[in-house]
């Protein structure tokens, strides 16, 4: 237990010392709020069912943060640790792989929630964004979505031979999802054919779930997303645990 605690504290420090990771998790989403907020403002529109662009972007940006952490930070850090020989040094200590992953997971989850709170705080300060759900279910939903997305990241980390490959795979998965899932820009502005593609992207279900929780939709309307994410979490989680390697 002491090992996981120390590992988590040090992982946090290392995360914050890594400029690129910190930028995409904490700074970039803030820039998005400032940029798109200044372009679109937060006037209610019929397109978004009476909500403004910023209202509807809060869960989307949160989804964006947890996806960047899951598909970029996690696999790149893990693969470069393996490549450099950090993991093989850990292998000759009594540290269990699960403890190691736990520390990493808690850190990335913490950073995701921190990034989200910055975005929401800024959205509220500048645009008085409307939140119509409940805090606890929303946070649970963010954690649940993060676990699903992170499990994809850990699977990439287990499979990719080098950090460079992990980087490319992460980007290839990340980019289409950002544009076609409703995270980066609302799906409603895309043509219908593009909206159909979105059904095959995991991030779409994250956005649906978080948006639903943000606007206080009942669980009965959210279960398809919960189910899809659960299947992803189960498959990728089990596979990545099975395929984990120190070297």
């Amino acid at each position: 237990m002491n090992a996981i605690k120390t590992l988590t504290i040090i992982d946090f420090k290392l995360f914050l010392r890594e400029p690129i990771g910190t930028f995409f998790t904490l700074a970039f989403p803030i820039i998005l709020v400032l940029l798109f907020g200044s372009i679109y403002g937060n006037e209610p529109t019929d397109l978004f069912g009476g909500y403004g662009t910023m209202d509807i972007s809060m869960p989307g940006y949160t989804a964006l943060i947890l996806t960047t952490v899951g598909l970029m930070n996690i696999p790149i850090t893990m693969c470069s640790y393996r490549e450099m020989g950090v993991l093989r040094r850990l292998k000759v200590t009594p540290l269990k792989p699960m403890s190691f992953i736990s520390g990493d997971l808690i850190t990335n989850l913490g950073m995701t929630l921190l990034g989200m709170s910055f975005v929401v705080l800024l959205g509220w300060l500048l645009y008085r964004v409307r939140f119509e759900g409940q805090v606890i279910p929303l946070i649970l939903g963010v954690i649940y979505s993060s676990l699903a997305m992170f499990s994809i990241g850990y699977l990439i980390a287990s499979l990719a031979p080098t950090a460079r490959v992990a980087n490319v795979v992460g980007l290839v998965l990340l980019y289409p999802m950002v544009f076609l899932s409703g995270a980066g820009m609302p799906l409603e502005i895309l043509p219908e054919s593009m909206q159909n593609i979105s059904k095959f992207l995991p991030l779409t279900y994250v956005v649906r779930l978080l948006r639903g929780l943000w606007f206080g939709l009942p669980a009965s309307e959210l279960w398809p997303s919960i189910l899809v994410l659960g299947v992803i979490l189960l498959i990728c989680g089990l596979l990545s645990a099975r395929l984990f390697r120190w070297e």
């Binding site: 002491n2 120390t6 020989g85 040094r89």
Partner: peptide, 23 residues
């Protein structure tokens, strides 16, 4: 080990604290 490494930004004192906590 002949070949191993630590995270580049990990400080010496943190390395001892971290690895010490495993035992």
């Amino acid at each position: 080990l002949q070949q191993s490494a630590l995270p580049p930004r990990l400080r010496v004192v943190e390395a001892l604290e971290l690895f010490g906590s495993f035992y």
